[in-house]
Design a protein around this nucleic acid. Structure first.
Lengths: 338, 338
DNA sequence: TTTCGCTACGAAAACGTTTTCGTGTTAAAA
DNA sequence: TTTTAACACGAAAACGTTTTCGTAGCGAAA
């Protein structure tokens, strides 16, 4: 079977030099019409395609972007990736996707791998472990080297970087406002531990809205869910108190759907007895019964915007563009649970 | 700032030749202890990492696998990718992920891109358009060239290839058996049009089980959903007939959850008045109310098994291994809807 | 006839590695 | 003292491109 052809084989097969072939394939005027069409015909017939590695090495440019996310089996991240892929492929860029599994070691390994010629730039959502341990040396090195990198969603603090983030605080604020407008007053929150900044920010905005309306939150209505322990039983506690809340804000879809299930199991009517509002507009919220009102964060937009910034950096490399922060706003998608 | 170092810069910086540096970094005995440790210390200090492109070009081996799937915002595919990533990274392989968006042209483009030195092998789920048009030339070319490639889930027919598929027929069979055992007799099916083989296979198995139990299916209980038209109204038709089924088999999770919703809207009790069983064990099935019984297809396993076959081909390239077909079996996960 | 200027092509270097082979130096063996 | 062998290193080619520069051949102008 016809093995893969390259410029050299075409050249020797056609009795010309590799330079001639290369030029002919690029429609160079240096090459005569006759030779050119002969070469192009041959190349087309044998499906010649230039070797990506050689091109990358020669041009110091790979037309590939690296993506590092914690997980891929996750509606939000897969939407982000989808957004990235879309604008990347529109600009003839390909993707190398790596998973950090929220581990620092994997993240470092991926960074090392990707930044040695493999890709022209990097899109990163920082791993939880890195955030917990405040270890960002691997990123700082890259930044010092002016390697094009844009952070998404979870970002390293206190660094001069390009980033695209969700306006989590405003999202929490909107969630609270929505509940209050609907007439709910005894509000509870299901949130994450301290080091997950997105959870903290959502809570901040939530509390701010409460304050503005002259409301406060009982400490026992403020549940910080520990992901290393069974989630159900932690949320269960909220429902096993004498006094129950009449509105719950869950900082993600998962907590929201669990809360819904527990509420229904305990005979509470949603939204009559208790309202529930989630965060992240994924598939689950649309299929529960009742469907869940959520604060929608636009992952796809996030991915494509981040990619645009990154490509812009790559195109204008060594021009000192100031660092950008893009804030993607959220909006409440009202469904049946409030 | 310390720009990226490479072998040449290390060599000139340390007054030795590139060959010496290369050997020293590989602990070659040809290099004296003194020089070796000097070089290694320097390399470590400046975080030297070999350039991936150069390595790939030199070794004719990139340590990367190409993955082409129709979509990524899809629970099943993202699980498949997750499985691929896991065994790939265990074997020090990286992933280049491309999306075909079920378009033939994109698929061809991706294939062309990936097979020119970028990756050592390919994992592919064929795009719907390619299946409809029966256009597989781009694959045939690769196969003729002995390029390592493994197909997943949706495969081109009549080709000598390695593939990992779901036992869709058996899955449909199990779904029917399950409904029948539970006492349901008037069964309906929500399936896909002809060209989507997985839907056809699932229906085949389903009908086989019916036949074995002496049951038949009314033509009007056999709904072929056309994805280009509103899905809800097509499924609605099933419920607007004089006589209703008492059990529904939906060939995917989406159809199942829509059917559930419509049934409930019409005041039917699930599973008392009507049972519903889906296919693909995703997130949705676990969060509906009642939760959905489904035929679980193990995407993660599929991905990792396919990757093992592929790596095996790559390691033993030019040894004529016969083509393999791995069939991933399914199982019924019983929940509340049956 | 000489000079000039095109046209059409080739040689070679470079991108960053690895690996084969060759070689200068030194110490041990003859 | 000469030969041999081990040691420690360097030169160069190769992977597949692109691009700069050089030049052979040729017709036209001087």
């Amino acid at each position: 079977m016809p093995k893969k052809v390259n410029i050299k084989t075409i050249a020797s097969e056609l009795g010309v030099s590799p330079s001639t072939v290369s030029k002919a394939l690029k429609d160079s005027h240096e090459i005569s019409e006759e030779t050119r069409s002969k070469i192009q015909a041959y190349a087309k017939f044998y499906h010649y395609k230039p070797n990506t590695l050689a091109l990358g090495l020669r041009n110091q440019k790979t037309m590939a972007l690296g993506v590092i996310v914690p997980e891929i089996v996750h509606h939000f991240f897969s939407r982000v990736i989808s957004g990235i892929e879309n604008t990347a492929s529109q600009n003839d860029y390909n993707l190398m996707i790596c998973l950090s599994k929220d581990q620092l070691s994997k993240e470092i390994q991926n960074i090392d791998m990707l930044t040695n010629g493999s890709v022209d730039g990097l899109l990163v959502t920082v791993a939880k472990e890195s955030l917990e341990k405040c270890n960002f040396e691997h990123f700082e090195r890259l930044i010092a080297q002016d390697f094009p990198i844009v952070f998404l969603d979870r970002v390293p603090p206190n660094l001069q970087i390009d980033k695209v983030i969700i306006d989590d605080s405003a999202g929490g604020y909107k969630a609270a406002k929505h509940l209050i407008e609907k007439g709910y007053r005894k509000l509870a929150i299901l949130t994450t531990p301290q080091h997950v900044t997105v959870g903290v920010d959502r809570e901040m905005g939530f509390l701010k809205a409460l304050k503005e309306s002259g409301l406060t939150i009982y400490p026992k209505f403020d549940i910080k869910v520990n992901e290393n322990e069974p989630i159900d039983s932690q949320i269960e506690k909220l429902f096993s108190q004498k006094e129950l809340p009449d509105g719950i804000f869950a900082v993600n879809e998962n907590y929201a759907s669990i809360a819904l299930k527990i509420a229904q199991k305990r005979g509470l009517k949603v939204p009559d007895d208790i309202a529930i509002i989630g965060f992240t507009d994924g598939l689950i919220s649309k299929t529960t019964n009742p469907t869940l009102t959520t604060v929608a964060q636009h992952g796809y937009t996030m991915g494509s915007q981040a990619t645009e910034i990154l490509l812009n950096r790559i195109y204008n490399k060594n021009e000192a563009i100031p660092n950008q922060t893009i804030v993607i706003s959220t909006n409440v998608v009202e469904r049946e649970s409030t």
